[in-house]
Design a protein around this nucleic acid. Structure first.
Lengths: 207, 207
DNA sequence: AAAATGAATGAATGGCCATTCATTTTATGG
DNA sequence: CCATAAAATGAATGGCCATTCATTCATTTT
């Protein structure tokens, strides 16, 4: 490991350190919650020294904000990538997006624990609210657009807004189940629940 | 106020104090999150003195646990009460329960903020997980039972489990929207989303 | 109404933890 | 290969906050 690091330039190392610390933070929050996460834990989890977080992130608040930003960015990338690959039919894109939400890389108790830890602070910390709101707004708009296309194609009478709201909510609620009762939860059953709605509301598009 | 308290016996006063402190805790958590809630804040919010929480609850952990228990019990009471009053048809009961979830007394950003604050710690604090799991299990079972009845009546082919999962998830996801974007959120629109599912999946029962 | 018991107060204590900083280690440009 | 600058360390600092406790105040009992 040290041998590998030797080959990296200073600026490369800088980025690596930051990411290393964010990863450690994710593990700590998932295990101990935001309140239970100490900078000394984060440093230990990253195999680095006490003062390292303040060196790279200046403050704990800052580290937490950057961690949330990383989570949001991680989701965004997967979302865009799925949107590109799937389709071209709107119905296929929508289904692919829903399936993404229950892939192990997204629907993973560790990551979800961190999402919920931040959601739990949304009312108290405007910065977190802002980041989460922007995320919701963006994906909401995309989903709504796809629903609109499907509705136009199929001549359905339901509001695109209603379907988009229902789908997004269902996803997030299923994530909560995954967090609270991981034993009992199955990603397949979750997808079946989502699919039951798509099928019921867009019968020509989903069988 | 002092005049009123004078008339109360010691044991009555004890209960009142505990409730007063739990109410203050709800307000503090809603405003500052669990991490930002100090015992001195709680005492101040209850117009009482510094050491009062330790006197009545022994420790902060204890106060938080009791606060979550209170939230759960509050929900349980409303749930049972709705279940009693509504019906007797299963479809009516189910609808009444869903409507309850979006009444102001339940779907209120202050209360929801506290629910989410605890959900955010579920992975880190087994005690919280236990309480939330029990809650989910219980209501899940009731909702599933009602869905089963409706399915049998209507000769639908969908699994009761799927519908129950979808409905519970949608509720909780909509609560998250209410928390994150209270400006944009409307309780009516949320109910429309839920209703769109009921209508689509149980067309004979919901028009 | 005196004694005893319980409730409430708020100042003092002690531990925890983010942050700082003097020192050491490592990388880079000349 | 040296000089300089950046990165990393970890011990020390200081502030915050849960908890304790001696004291005061109120209620109940005898």
């Amino acid at each position: 490991m040290a041998a590998i690091e030797k080959k990296l330039s200073r600026t490369e190392k800088r980025e690596i350190r930051r990411q290393q610390l964010i990863d450690a933070t994710l593990r700590c929050i998932s295990k101990n919650g935001i309140g239970g996460t100490k900078l000394s834990d984060v440093a230990k989890a990253a195999n680095l020294s006490q003062g390292i977080v303040n060196l790279h992130f200046a403050s704990k608040d800052n580290l937490l904000r950057e961690t949330l930003n990383y989570l949001a960015e991680d989701y965004r990338q997967q979302f865009e990538s799925v949107l590109e690959r799937a389709g071209p039919a709107a119905a296929d894109k929508l289904q692919a997006l829903m399936e993404m939400d229950f892939k192990p890389s997204v629907c993973d108790p560790h990551k979800l624990a961190v999402w919920f830890a931040f959601w739990g602070e949304v009312k108290a910390v405007p910065t977190y609210r802002k980041i989460c709101q922007d995320r919701d707004r963006h994906y909401g708009a995309v989903i709504r657009g796809l629903c609109r296309e499907i509705i136009d194609e199929g001549g359905y009478t339901i509001e695109s807004n209603t379907v988009a709201t229902a789908l997004s909510a269902m996803t997030e609620g299923l994530w909560l189940s995954c967090l609270i009762s991981p034993k009992n939860f199955s990603r397949e059953a979750a997808m079946v629940a989502v699919y039951s709605y798509l099928q019921a509301v867009f019968p020509q598009h989903y069988k």
